[in-house]
Design a protein around this nucleic acid. Structure first.
Lengths: 161, 161
DNA sequence: GAAGCTGATGCTACACTATAACAAAGGCCC
DNA sequence: GGGCCTTTGTTATAGTGTAGCATCAGCTTC
């Protein structure tokens, strides 16, 4: 169900079909457990988001969705994306206005995203030290933290080389 | 020139004129040092952004600017905002598409923003432990970090009470 | 099985955010 | 004065996201 650390990274070369299948299976299981509906439309959107490890814009999703789903309109896509985010199946990358499949759906987590500005590949990382630093900083400011956005742009290992 | 820690926080009550004056003075000095032009237009935009400790949208800036500057249009505002960001005088809050005066202009830093979802007040915090955690995480992933976005939404001390 | 409810989708229009592209104006240098 | 650079003016348009109401399918209750 969960993948090993090596497969969670945004490699330039890997068998991506496995990523997609894993994500869909996890999503179906989670939604079933929670009693929420992963409808064909929502599943299709999830699949589209998972076509790569690059964040994908809502209107890119729409273009792709429209190929198989003539009636697709902006609200169609945004509603599906909102559902998937609410269920923790995808994340929104705020600095790109784009959406990315979550590699650890189900596990409570607030990721750190490493976004390559050259190839677009984006890796989600969980980091206890980061969580601790953020919790500590919030606490010091007597701030009640609810939602986190932590994104780093730069060059991935491959593109920096 | 730099303010004490107490005055950097997004208090609900404080003499905000001091904040604005400090920010403008710092901006003028910095731009003079760097040989870049803090034109009246840019200064006015900076002043508008500094009207509060809440992030302000570009079109809010435009509305305000237009009161004294009839020819103001979207590009007028975005160009000024881009300049101010490039000089490190303001920050963009990505999760709100809004802009906020930088409390520590000039000092190299990558802040953590605590954004109150109720009152909107947003506090910028510098945190060495956070920086360390981010650097370490980037390094582990062999990622060359360039730009950071760290934003936490929630409730500030006053609004949580 | 009709009435009513709920959640999901269809559909039109619109609001909000941001940029492209080119023109004009002003300062500076030679 | 001519050429160059930076800033601002101006029009148009691209990109991102939501409001609001209609419809439809499944489910329940009587």
């Amino acid at each position: 169900m969960t993948r090993g650390a090596a497969q969670q990274t945004a490699h330039h070369t890997h068998n991506h079909k496995v990523c997609i299948e894993d994500a869909l299976t996890t999503a179906r299981d989670l939604c079933a457990e929670r009693g929420v509906q992963l409808t064909p439309l929502r599943e299709k959107v999830l699949q589209i988001v998972w076509r790569s490890h690059k964040p994908v814009g809502a209107y890119e999703v729409l273009d792709e969705l429209a190929r198989s789903h003539k009636s697709a309109r902006p609200p169609t896509v945004y509603r599906a994306l909102d559902f998937l985010m609410a269920e923790g199946l995808i994340h929104k990358i705020q600095s790109l206005n784009a959406y990315l499949g979550c590699v650890e759906a189900g596990a409570p987590h607030s990721g750190l995203f490493l976004i390559c500005r050259k190839c677009g590949a984006t890796e989600e990382i969980a980091d206890p030290k980061l969580d601790a630093a953020l919790d500590q900083a919030s606490k010091r400011a007597r701030f009640r933290s609810e939602r986190r956005v932590v994104e780093i742009s730069g060059l991935c290992a491959q593109c920096a080389a």
